[in-house]
Design a protein around this nucleic acid. Structure first.
Lengths: 255, 255
DNA sequence: CAGTGGTCTAGACCACCGC
DNA sequence: CGGTGGTCTAGACCACTGG
């Protein structure tokens, strides 16, 4: 919160509002964030240079740099020395394996592959409706997916996607789906996954789950329940992933 | 990396070296870090105001602020608006329960209590010697500890501490040990725990472990293997914690 | 080489804290 | 009220990138 400089900020259009209850760089960050969310600059592309931005907002360079820093910390922007400031692309989704170490008997393990086991449309249950901010009676897509390494089944996933946003996936050929879903969401549905939250817990496999993972009923497993969010911080994917508990391996930093 | 300003940086004493291959604020941060590590300013106390520091290093305020920001990000300093810049105290160690949710049948659960089951001196095994940077044949303290909530055993811990640093703990009355060990390390041994790394994995309880946790042999459990580091980034504690896998509950952010 | 972000300066003024 | 950190300015110069 700083210098309101009373009545020195009246600008022509009336569209933009001077800092109100915030620092100037905080307000600038909000303004730039809005322009990004509204699609003025496409993910992966560069925004105007800081000198230009500073001039266009009639603000000192350092102030603009501070605003940009906020958005970098937020994961919305990425700065590359000598090249420019870029709108960050979404998550690549390859982050599920970080909880597991599936060691193959041989040497190097291949990249994981995916197979869609089932896809159906159904009504959202209350929990899903709340998470997706959908009205009661709205529909969702539910997808079952098996991820394997070297033809060995490793992870069993259940995905739930809100409907109308992912309507483009209701008809498409599931056999042609990418292994990495998030880039596909972006390409096919225009949905950018910006961040996510994973809840980990342990359980025992049911008979059905065990069969698909080539394990025995009652085998210990890890359950990862993920909520994935878009740029607007709206939840746009619910995912439950099951994997062999004995393959679980995770490292956390403590501060 | 910036302005070397050739031959304009020669200072009197010869003790301090001008920026060499680094930015000036990077060098300043290193200098201040050294003064903190060497104990010039005690954890919890304030360092001189930024204006003074800037003057004493003949540097602009903004540059000094940037240096301080680095140390704040590192967790070494903490800034409090209107009060000063403070050397951060170490971890409080209460962070082990963050992986578990032990729900008691009743309402509110009491604070966890600890009981030392055993303490012995022994030779460091090769892995420990390497982690602690001890010579072969060096000794360590091994401690077994049971943490309970409302008299219900929850976590079984094995601690290994390098010797001579923790010599003060070889004779002290284990019954009088604090529940929070890290503040005790600091008070009794002068060892500040600055950060730690937790490796999580899954296993089944042995008969002995199960007995102590009031569970059955072969019960699923989570193993947390922690390495704790002091301000100098030396590993000063190895800890293995076992807990009921079905009480495990952890949330991770994905960016 | 021109254009980008990164570092640094010297100063002003503001907001928070505790006396 | 004096002292602290927080914001902001208007400029200079440096370092990286790519044509």
């Amino acid at each position: 919160m700083t210098g309101t400089r009373i009545s020195a900020d009246v600008q022509g259009t009336g569209a933009e509002t001077p800092p109100t209850g915030q620092s100037r760089y905080g307000w600038l960050a909000a303004a730039l964030r809005a322009r990004i969310l509204q699609g003025e600059w496409v993910p992966g592309e560069a925004i105007p240079p800081e000198t230009l931005l500073a001039k266009s907002y009639s603000v000192a360079l350092g102030t603009m740099r501070q605003a940009l820093s906020l958005l970098v910390a937020d994961g919305l922007l990425e700065r590359r020395h000598g090249k420019g400031t870029f709108v960050k692309a979404g998550l690549d989704g390859a982050t599920m394996m970080r909880f597991f170490r599936f060691r193959q008997s041989g040497e190097m393990q291949s990249a994981p592959t995916s197979r869609i086991l089932a896809r159906k449309l159904r009504l959202a249950d209350p929990h899903e409706a709340e998470a997706f901010a959908l009205p009661q009676g709205a529909s969702v897509i539910e997808v079952q997916r098996l991820r394997s390494i070297d033809a060995h089944p490793c992870l069993l996933e259940t995905l739930v996607l809100p409907l109308p946003a992912f309507a483009a996936l209701t008809e498409s050929d599931t056999a042609a789906w990418d292994d990495l879903l998030y880039p596909m969401y972006q390409r096919v549905c225009g949905v950018v996954i910006h961040h996510a939250q994973d809840h980990l817990s342990f359980d025992l496999l049911t008979a059905t789950q065990a069969k698909r993972l080539a394990l025995e009923k009652g085998h210990p497993c890890v359950r990862v329940q993920r909520q994935a969010f878009d740029l607007f911080n709206r939840c746009v994917e619910l995912r439950t992933t099951l994997g062999d508990a004995f393959a679980f391996e995770y490292t956390a930093q403590v501060r």
